[in-house]
Every structure is written in C-alpha cells, then in structure tokens.
Design a protein around this nucleic acid. Structure first.
Length: 403
RNA sequence: GUGAGAUUAGCUCAGCUGGUUAGAGCACUGGUUUGUGGUGCCGGGGGUCGCGGGUUCGAAUCCCGUAUCUCACCCCA
C-alpha cells in the first residue's frame, strides 16, 4: 500500500464538512469587511521567503520544501501566505496605484516539521492582508474580524496583544535589550545565546523557565515606544474596549516572522494542547518596501484551519433530499429517469437494487434524507410514485409526472 | 532535530508471564415468507496482529531495526 507522506493528510467526509463550513464562514465575514479573494501560487522563488519571512526564522532556516526545478530555479513550496500576496500586490503595481487594497486567501502551506497534533507538514491557513491603510483602526478591524469568525464558529479564545514598535523606536530598544541579555549571558540557554545575534527580540519568547527568570528585569518594549507607536497602541486598546473585545497585554509576545512591526496579536485556545496559537497577525509596514515595492503600510493575520477544526461547533444538519428505489426490477428504469429530473433541483440518492418497502425505508434512514420515494408494481401500473416524509411520517402517492 | 508512549477486522478496543483454527462491540451485508423505517430476531463476509529481521520446537506476545501516529521540547497558524 502506498501511504500519504508524513504529516500530509487527506480531508474527507465529516472533516471536509467542517473544513468547508469554516471556509464559508470566514469568507462571508471577510467579504463583509470589504476583502476580496486572491489566489497565489503554491510554488514561489525561494528568495521571496528569505527576504520576507527572514533568514533568521526557523521557517526559512530549516523548514522549507526547497528544491531546484528543471529550469535551474531555486524554488520552494510556500511556508506561509503573506509573502505571496505581497509579491502579487507589487507585481500588479498596486503599490503604485495607491488607495487601499484588501485581500483574503486560503490554501495549503508547507513546512518540513515533525508533525504532532495541530502541526502538519501540509496544513491550511485562512488569511487576510490589507495594504495602504496606516490607521490603527485597520489593525483593530483585523482583530474584530478574527473575533467575529471565532465567535460565529463557537470557538473560545484568549487574545494576546503587544506592540513591536517601529523603525524609530525598535532599533534603540533592541540595542538596550542586547546589552541586558549579554550581561546575564552565563545563565541563559544555548538557543538564547544564538538568538542574541540572529533575532534578539525572540529571547523574550524563550520557553525556558530559567531564562524567563533572568529576563524578569529586562527592558520592556512597551516602555520604549516612540510617541506615535505609544499613542497608536493606546488607541488600539480603546477601540477594542469600545467594541467589547477582551485582550491581555503580553510584552513578551513576539511574532515569529521578521516582517512584523507595531501591532502584534495572537489568538490562543486552551483546549487543543501545546500548539495553542489559532490565529496570529499584526502590522508589517516595511515588508512591501523590502520586496522592492513602494513603501506601503500593511496589516494582516492568518488562522490555522487544522487547529480550529476540532473546536468548531457545527450547526445541526437537517435531513435533506430524497432517497429513491424500486420494489421491482422493471421499475428501476423509471426511478433513474425520475431521479435525473429531480436532481435538477434536489439531492437524490438512488438505490439500484430492488428491495421490499421495509428495506428501502431502512436504507433511506441511513442516507439521512427527508423523503423516501419508491416505485413498485402498483405505482408502475398507475404511473404513480409513493412518497413518505421521514420526519413527520406522512405519506402520499402522486403521479410520476408531478414529482 | 531531541525525548517518551503507541501500532491487532472499516472504527473503538480485548488478547494474563510466548503454546493448538486471533476475539468483542459498532459498521457493512443477507434473511426475517413478498408494501411501512430509524430502536426486534437469526445469519454472513472481513485480520499473513504496521513493515523487515532475529531468538525459539513454537511469536500478536521477547529482542533489534524501520515506518507511521500521539504527547512533550523546539517552532509556529
């Protein structure tokens, strides 16, 4: 037997129903916020991710499905969605067009990781990206959108919030932090020693308890924001308060991707184990420029669909459609013809084996349909069809032509 | 990439310290004497016990390897 590759799953049956229910719900809400669908390729030039996600990140450093294609191009399967959307935005010259452009997407992402619950090698994200709007109201709208989606799906969450500062205030803060960390270098873990050089802000995020103890007195980013960043963060909190969205300030919340600045947020669930981040996002005002576009403010988020799957509370499904069968072999051809006609408007499941009425009703139950329609010798003779409503148990016989 | 635990029928799992044709429930399928279901009754099919080696007279059971899954680390959605 040939099995699927490690960490790559098939989605079918009930899972697929949940999956599409999520996509439909999220799509509707994104459209209500004025976002438009965008589809970008699964395969991109490797450089795109090196420059956007950042070479210091694990995603780019060791988790990409990267290879040389037959034309000698260095390519890789997308490990996340933002880079491709930004690339498309610039390639279509929308950065030069000006104005505001809002996109949403969903699709497969690939990361060569060790799989566990909520972490696959091929997984799916739903995300949105907004370009051209620097107002913090847009940041707040993003958070409200995630909140709307999760609420509609019946998913509980905690929202964590931080500001990563901008070009003005982040570099001086980083210098200060590096100095602090280097002073307590003896006690920190290997990862942190490496991080000080590659991406110092990430040490705050370290899961190592002894490191965290040492960092208790570390300078806090929130205390070093410039006036603009600080005011924006205050306004963001006010907007969320005004809209009854609860949040926690987490000064150690650092988005894993290099391109974030200012607003950073993460939605976490306490019900799905250690892979608890179900949505994350923030502002990335410099990314368009990094990728050779005109400086354009931008903000976005992504949700991990697989992590949401088991949390989604599905609406109750009602019995729907018809089951049709014949009680005599000769009646089957009538059944097929009538079913074909009925299928122009309704769901119809046809049983090809002739059975007695009892067995047809049993089968109709299993098919979870609302009506059981059967043709036997009586019906054939009179050109009728016998129908039973399986919910209210009413039954009637009507001419085939009126079915 | 690191550590731990799993892997027996389509699914959920029994199978004691190695001993004759590997079991249950659910699911599937047929019948219940020929037109009334979801919840009756009787029957049936389906497993080289993840895969590959080894120990043994004998392995689902012990040992080694390998694959996959799960949990944690790491990372992140």
């Amino acid at each position: 037997m040939i099995a699927s590759l490690r960490g790559m799953n098939d989605i079918l049956s009930e899972d697929y129903e949940r999956f599409t229910y999520f996509i439909t719900t999220a799509t509707n809400i994104a459209q209500r916020y004025g976002f438009h669908f965008i589809e970008t390729p699964l395969l991109e030039e490797t450089t795109l991710f090196k420059r956007s996600v950042g070479e210091s990140s694990d995603i780019v450093g060791k988790e990409m499905y990267q290879f040389i294609d037959k034309g000698g191009n260095d390519v890789c399967l997308r490990p996340e969605g933002t880079a491709g959307v930004v690339r498309a935005f610039i390639q279509k010259k929308l950065d030069r067009a000006g104005g505001i452009h809002r996109f949403f997407y969903h699709g497969a992402m690939f990361r060569y990781e060790r799989p566990q619950k909520g972490r696959l090698r091929q997984f799916h994200q739903f995300g949105v990206e907004s370009f051209g709007e620097s107002s913090v109201y847009e940041d707040a709208s993003m958070i409200m959108m995630v909140s709307d989606i999760l609420k509609t799906l019946g998913i509980g969450y905690r929202l964590q919030l931080n500001s990563l500062g901008c070009n003005e205030c982040m570099p001086p803060y980083r210098t200060k932090l590096v100095k602090f960390v280097k002073e307590c270098q003896d006690g920190i873990c290997e990862d942190c020693i490496r991080r000080v050089d590659t991406n110092p802000i990430r040490v705050l995020d370290c899961k190592n308890g002894s490191c965290q103890e040492l960092y208790v007195g570390a300078p806090k980013l929130l205390n070093h924001l410039c006036l603009t960043c600080s005011d924006d963060f205050k306004l963001l909190k006010k907007i969320l308060d005004d809209n009854s969205i609860k949040y926690e300030i987490d000064t150690n919340l650092v988005r894993g991707l290099d391109y974030y600045s200012k607003t950073a947020f993460e939605f976490v669930s306490d019900e799905i184990g250690s892979q608890s981040a179900i949505a994350g996002g923030g502002r990335y005002d410099r990314l368009v420029e990094f990728l050779d576009g005109r400086p354009t403010p931008a903000v976005g988020f992504a949700m991990g669909i697989e992590r949401l799957m088991e949390l989604i509370k599905m609406p109750q499904t009602k019995k729907d459609g018809y089951y049709m069968g014949a009680m005599d072999e000769e009646a089957l051809d009538f059944v097929v013809q009538i079913a074909h006609k009925k299928r122009q408007t309704d769901k119809v499941i046809v049983e090809y084996k002739s059975k007695n009425l009892k067995n047809h009703l049993k089968a109709a139950d299993k098919a979870n349909v609302k009506y059981c329609a059967v043709i036997g010798s009586n019906e054939m003779r009179d050109k009728n069809i016998w129908i039973k409503n399986l919910e209210d148990k009413s039954e009637y016989t009507i001419p085939m032509s009126e079915f």
